[in-house]
Write a protein that binds this DNA or RNA. Structure first.
Lengths: 247, 247
DNA sequence: GCAGCGGATTGACGCAGGTTAAGTCTTGCT
DNA sequence: AGCAAGACTTAACCTGCGTCAATCCGCTGC
């Protein structure tokens, strides 16, 4: 099993790794620092983000328990985004150079890293589409669906309930809107009977409807067929052919 | 040299690969198809995109000569986005299963794939920030800077001139705006004396200014120091600490 | 229990970018 | 060369989301 062996690889890398605790708001790494460690988050949440000159900021990734933080450091001398703990975090320290040299020797290790990176690329590409052309409510709906499934797959969530230690500002900075509008949008989702969100817990009341409103694209949707074409509205020369499958 | 050996790896994978030609607008792969080949684009441009039910579409990646299209297929049974040729394309066919099995045996191959995937992840994460929180002109400026540098690094561009076979609709679908607004924005950049764009050629007249307006983050910027802090405007409790470095 | 602070919420109003529509310029085809 | 078809451009108007500001709510510490 690819994933079983991936887990074993991770375990073997972690085995002798020392742990470290970060307080909430503490940096795991700052932009321009050289990261000497890759952190395997064991408990708590963190965010990778970037600050623009005028104070705008954007969160490009959340890290939950089980996430590696950050593999991209294997190919760069200095971090190009900062990472900050959103809650207290406990993480196992994987030495970057040691991981790098193990990758050179052992194809299983580099294969694991490659697969992890490729899987993340796929998810990121989907999120690009969402950020690029969806409305506020679609973005938030998509984000919630994806987050829940990610946690569920790791056994950190079930029955459409999961931890949600993020502030509305965090959600806004991730989905590319203001906290005020994130608040309005969350209210709309709540009033539509789609979700419940209190005390740092999220409950998705109607996953199917939420996923559909988000154009969330997963085999996990009960009827994949429902998401199919309905094309025909589109034509035009430089447009993409109408035969491209939708969502 | 990591990159030299990466090139050799690519060459060795390509050596006996048959070529294929695609016409403009022809699909390299359609969503939901199982991709049996990974294409190494040798000539022409392509785009990876997704169509939403209501006809909105978003391009998540452009492929230019030298790009692999698409490594993510190594970890999935069916493509989750379609890829279409924007111009006539010539591509070398790498058998997916053969590449996969070589990765299992030869650490150099999986290392190359891992590094390629990680580097692309980094670039994608930067683009996420741009899509997420920048204005129309910043997005387009960023896109042009990145595109030019990507081509230059491969020797496909110099003197701030490069091919640009994309329609305004393509640019719009990539940057997440309408073709009309992309047109307005390109006009503004032209009138500001930053770029020239005609006959499918792009000329960047003032790269430094364009990069600065885009908050383009690269060591290649003449004075990296100029991009530094100016922080101090930000505070507040759940905000990110003001000590996070900006762009 | 109460004070104080950070986060959530709501409302009024403005603007960047979307929409629609009417041209004009390019390019490829015959 | 001549003619479409497609790409680009501009203008007028509209709207989703940003901005600003006031208020409320729920912790935490005393």
């Amino acid at each position: 099993m690819a994933s079983a062996s991936a887990d074993q690889i991770l375990q073997s890398l972690r085995s002798d790794a020392p742990h470290r605790h970060f307080r909430g708001r503490e940096f795991l790494v700052r932009k321009r620092e050289t990261p000497h460690a890759i952190w395997l988050i064991e408990d708590g949440w963190a965010a990778r983000f970037k600050l623009l000159r005028d104070g705008r900021r954007h969160i490009s990734r959340f890290y939950a328990p089980g996430d590696l933080c950050d593999l991209a450091w294997l190919v760069t001398e200095s971090a190009d985004q900062s990472i900050i703990a959103l809650t207290p975090v406990r993480a196992a320290r994987l030495d970057r150079h040691r991981l790098d040299s193990r990758m050179r020797i052992d194809p299983a290790v580099s294969l694991t890293v490659a697969r992890d990176a490729l899987a993340e690329m796929r998810a990121q590409a989907e999120w690009l589409v969402t950020l690029g052309c969806k409305s506020a409510s679609e973005k938030i709906a998509y984000f919630l669906c994806e987050l829940y499934l990610r946690l569920e797959r790791r056994g950190q969530a079930r029955d459409h309930n999961c931890d949600f230690p993020l502030s509305q500002q965090d959600v806004a900075d991730f989905t590319g809107m203001t906290a005020v509008h994130a608040c309005r949008t969350l209210r709309d989702l709540r009033e539509a009977g789609l979700i419940e969100l209190r005390r740092r817990r999220l409950r998705i009341i109607d996953f199917v409807r939420l996923a559909r409103m988000a154009s969330f694209d997963r085999d996990c949707l009960p009827s994949d067929a429902e998401c199919l074409p309905d094309v025909g509205a589109m034509a035009g020369p430089r447009d993409f052919p109408a035969t491209a499958m939708v969502v």
